Amino acid sequence: MGREIAHVMSFEGLDWLERNSREKEENTNLALASLPLSDNSIVADIGAGSGFYTSKIAKLIPNGKIYAVEIQDDAITYLKKIATNDRLSNMEVIKGTEQSPNLPANSIDLAFMVDVYHELQYPAAYLTALKKALKPNGQLLLLEYKAEDPKVAIKPEHKMSVKQAKKELLANGFKLIKNATFLPLQHFLLFKKTD
């Protein structure tokens, strides 16, 4: 749809995901505080990576559940260690595929992708599978580096514009319901299913 699909960042990028400067650079605490969550939400962190967001959200939803979805075996092993070591009984690690998160149908209140959507190798197929996993009022949140901002020092194929995200998501059954501009480097784009 007029965009180069980026290569998936390998799990060798663990240090980048867990860098000490990440909170300050991306204001991750504000992103977390802005998530549409209740204490019993069922959430999916798609492309969970190191679990940077997953483990924090698990603590915010004590009566809920978070699925950490990954396709890379090294990340899955790492996420399972986090769940065990941090005693996160409401965190479940799921091995997804390039075309599906492999989540139960009609089970998710919120799915989110932090700098992941642009790496989906089969975005249409993946969104179709994700739609099935979302409850009727389920939502999808994309945090993506701002393509419109030349000061965001990320490779162009690893950025997304609001226009491009809206175009792709609308074509796959999602409507933008919130475009929050409070993060310094990323878009905060909340979508709901259109059908």
Rank of each mutant, 00 (worst) to 15 (best):
G2C: 05
L37K: 03
L120H: 07
H118L: 04
L79A: 03
T97K: 03
E144F: 03
K135F: 09
G138H: 06
L35M: 11
I42P: 00
G96T: 02
H187I: 01
F188Y: 15
I46R: 10
P150H: 09
E70P: 10
I5Q: 10
E26N: 12
R19N: 14
N29T: 13
A44T: 01
Q139N: 09
G47V: 02
N85E: 14
L35T: 03
A171H: 13
I61A: 00
M160D: 09
L142Y: 00
T128H: 15
E12M: 07
S21K: 12
E70S: 10
A6G: 08
F174V: 03
T54C: 05
F188S: 13
G49K: 10
E144H: 03
R22Q: 05
K24M: 11
D15R: 13
L37Q: 08
N85P: 05
K151E: 13
L120Q: 04
L176T: 02
F52M: 02
H7E: 15
K175L: 11
F191N: 00
P62F: 12
S38M: 15
L142A: 02
D39C: 06
S21G: 06
P62T: 07
S21Y: 10
V152L: 04
G2F: 08
Y67E: 01
M9G: 15
I71Y: 04
E23M: 06
G173V: 03
P123L: 03
P36L: 09
H118F: 14
G13D: 08
K24N: 11
P136M: 07
A180D: 15
G96Q: 04
A180Y: 09
G49A: 06
L88I: 01
S55I: 08
L30K: 14
V152Q: 06
A125V: 01
N27A: 09
I71G: 00
I177T: 14
E23H: 08
L79H: 06
Y78H: 15
A180V: 06
L14W: 12
V93P: 00
K192N: 10
P36Q: 14
D195V: 07
K24A: 13
Q72E: 07
E157W: 06
T77Y: 12
A165R: 02
K80Y: 01
I61D: 02
I154E: 05
E12A: 12
L30P: 04
L17K: 02
A111P: 05
G173A: 05
G2N: 10
G138C: 01
D86G: 06
H7D: 15
T181Q: 13
M9K: 14
E12T: 12
A68Q: 03
K167Y: 13
D39V: 15
H187F: 03
